[in-house]
Simulated scan of single mutants.
Amino acid sequence: MNLQKTFTRPLRLARGHVIVGCALFALLASSLTLVGRGLPPPRFVLDRVTQGGLTPIGEYSWRKASDWLVGRKYAVLTFDDGPYGHGVDEQILGVLHRHHAHAIFFLVCNHINDTTSHLLGVYEHEGHIIGNHSFDHLRLSELSDGALRDQVEGCSRRIASLTGHRPFYFRPPFGMTSAHVKHFAEMSGMQQMLWDANSQDSWQTRPEQIRFWSNRDTDNLSILLMHDKPTTAAVLDQTLNDLEQRGFQFVLPEQLPPDTVTD
């Protein structure tokens, strides 16, 4: 008996199976990568449990494998406390336009005046979403029902008077909310949106720190908190470049009624 032939034949067969398996896997991976390239982003809604991230809906399972293979990720950009005026809003809008990115602008309605009111039309013309950030940026959980109504409803009415429709998303100032504040926003037809990634630009004065924290905090399906202010505008282009190099695409959640069933 030729022992060498006996022992090497199974080894050759096993090696052949491995090669064929690797080739098939490479073909599948290549196909998934090509299929996912160039297609519009998947559909997302606000995560109703955390209110600080995204939940994919629709036909996402087959895209998930493609996204994983190429490192593709998704995030929502949000800007609080606008409109700022003095050219800052236009600077932010210009950067977003260059990156083909859309964002949600949570406006403080007492910042909307004769010199900034035109920006609401610009936001929407560029494909961005306008959200309610209260009328005077107060700590809403500490207010009476009447004062809370003035802050939330007053801002929604102000936005509607300029855009023709009420805002769908609401963000409490400082992220300070309560079950009562959340319920009041929902009764006003809005979904409360928080965040799970913080640029720290509400207190950081150095643009490089804003860039660092934005990149460090943002993960797949994150909502990134930024503010409509000069230091953020100054570093926004570099920040978006960093995130894009990590595979991020910037998306907006779909505005669905609260009782909508999603799969």
Rank of each mutant, 00 (worst) to 15 (best):
Gly38Ala: 02
Gly164Cys: 10
Cys155Arg: 13
Val49Asp: 10
Arg9Pro: 05
Gln191Ala: 08
Leu140Thr: 05
Arg37Glu: 13
Ala14Asp: 04
Val49Ile: 11
Asp228Cys: 12
Pro258Tyr: 05
Arg139Trp: 10
Asp219Pro: 00
Arg206Val: 13
Leu27Ile: 13
Gly71Thr: 09
Gln209Cys: 14
Lys182Tyr: 07
Pro40Arg: 04
Asn241Phe: 00
Gly52Glu: 02
Arg139Tyr: 12
Arg9Thr: 15
Ser144Pro: 02
Thr78His: 02
Leu224Ala: 02
Pro167Lys: 06
Gly121Met: 06
Val88Gln: 02
Phe106Ala: 09
Asn198Phe: 09
His100Asn: 13
Phe79Ser: 07
Val88Lys: 03
Gly94Thr: 00
Pro42Arg: 09
Ala75Ser: 08
Cys109Arg: 09
Leu138Thr: 10
Asp217Gln: 13
Arg15Met: 11
Gln191His: 06
Arg12Pro: 02
Ile19Ala: 14
Glu244Asp: 08
Ile104Leu: 04
Thr231Asn: 15
Val70Ser: 15
Val95Tyr: 00
Thr177Trp: 07
Asp67Leu: 04
Trp68Glu: 14
Lys73Leu: 04
Thr50Phe: 01
Leu28Trp: 13
Ala197Gln: 09
Lys64Met: 13
Ile129Pro: 03
Leu236Pro: 09
Ala160Phe: 06
Leu34Val: 15
Gly127Leu: 02
Leu236His: 06
Val181Asn: 10
Ser178Arg: 05
Phe7Pro: 01
Arg48Ile: 00
Arg15Phe: 10
Pro167Ala: 06
Asp242Thr: 00
Pro10Thr: 12
Gly121Glu: 07
Ile92Gly: 01
Gly131His: 01
Asp47Gln: 00
Arg246Ala: 05
Ala14Lys: 08
Val122Ala: 14
Val251Glu: 06
Thr232Phe: 03
Tyr169Ile: 02
Trp68His: 13
Gln91Val: 03
Asp145Gln: 14
Arg48Thr: 01
Leu236Trp: 04
Pro10Glu: 07
Pro56Cys: 08
Ile57His: 05
Gln204Tyr: 10
Met176Asn: 10
Asp237Asn: 07
Tyr60Ala: 12
Ile210Tyr: 10
